[in-house]
Nucleic acid binder design. Structure first.
Lengths: 212, 212
DNA sequence: GCTTTTCCTTGACAGTCGTCAAGTTTTTCT
DNA sequence: AGAAAAACTTGACGACTGTCAAGGAAAAGC
């Protein structure tokens, strides 16, 4: 094969791979929405296909099996979810502003992306039963922890203090609050959500210690 | 009907009800174990029956449907789970002792009843998707919050201080730590669990404020 | 001891599930 | 344009699901 022909074939192969990956991603996104709607326990391949523009058979053309598909969907979740607060950190110039904008973003995404968030907790819990999810869950959980840590440590910095707990503890505290707010959100208990919102600034302050 | 006959019939009726309830409870416990083993998504009635000494048909003799059965199982969980720390609170005479015994109990039940605990988180997450679980979940969550509050407020009392966060925030913080410890427990990451154990006393101290 | 009630098993039902093979449509290449 | 390859649909498979009715086994009542 000449060099030119070889390069051409490469280009073709790459384009095919790109197309393949693009469709995979498209189907993974449809999967993500279905999972967010129904939860892991009630999500079937036919239901996923109905949330896409294809028939159910195509899923086995692009994915080895259901696990492969859901794993890919989880990875899509990560892409969406894990840089949410970075802009807040980057643009805030005072501690008070950072805290306020974090709280605002926190409850904004709670209301906006509630179905997606409940899916995250669903999958994280599934990973307690199904080993095959664990690696991805741990990775995403780590990224979430990092994200929270960037916020809190920056807040401490702006405040001239230090975080008072480890990254892990800091994360689970805020994550716990989010989980509870989510539960009350779906219960329709707006008062409880509002109360959590009122309390959140004080909790953040608990997580940092002012120095002298 | 004579009074004697009436009373006798009452006694019989009561005995029948007792037997009926006893069997219901027995089957609910079998259900609980199956759920703890497999998780909500993978638990079927036939599997539950295999974990009992009966056949699958009997479940519809004692329960209206699957939801009824699982609801009863969740209630069983509550009976088991919600008074766990009360003895610690009752017998501890110093703040340090209370804190130490709480931490010990915390990680003891983590190792001992791990499957049951993951089930709790599974069902709580299911309630985000399935409205019919929500009432029971909220009730149990409330009892767990009360339980944690009894511990922390008593700790503050012994320390001569006050809780620094609301009952809700206090609960979600410790619950978040428990959830994370559970995840690492099932991952087999004993180091991470040990680290959480080391940090837990400091977190508890964060949750109370000494009064000058 | 016989009858009635309670308890439990068995087997079947209609439906859904993941998977896959066969075949059709669409796109790509020459 | 025709041939080859890729993309997609359709329909079927065996297995599994919750539910329930028919009937046998055990217990209770007389």
């Amino acid at each position: 094969m000449t060099e030119v022909a070889s390069r051409k074939q490469d280009r073709i192969a790459r384009r095919q791979v790109d197309k393949f990956d693009a469709r995979r991603t498209e189907l993974a996104v449809a999967t993500l929405h279905t999972l967010a709607d129904l939860g892991y326990a009630r999500t079937s391949l036919r239901e996923i296909a109905q949330n896409s523009e294809f028939s159910h058979g195509v899923l086995h053309y692009y994915f080895a099996d259901k696990r492969d598909l859901i794993t890919e969907a989880v990875r899509q979740y990560e892409v969406v979810c894990v840089t949410r607060y970075d802009e807040v950190v980057a643009t805030s110039t005072t501690a008070e502003q950072l805290r306020a904008e974090f709280v605002a973003m926190f409850f904004d995404t709670l209301g906006q992306d509630a179905p997606l968030h409940r899916l995250w907790y669903d999958l994280r819990t599934q990973s307690l039963f199904d080993e095959s999810f664990r690696a991805d869950v741990l990775e995403i959980d780590g990224h979430r922890e990092d994200m929270v840590w960037r916020v809190v440590s920056r807040y401490a910095e702006l405040l001239g203090g230090m975080p008072s707990a480890s990254p892990g503890t800091t994360y689970v505290t805020l994550d716990g609050i989010f989980q509870r707010a989510l539960l009350h959100h779906f219960t329709g208990n707006a008062d409880a959500v509002a109360r959590l919102r009122t309390e959140l600034p004080a909790v953040i302050d608990l997580l940092v210690t002012k120095v002298g």
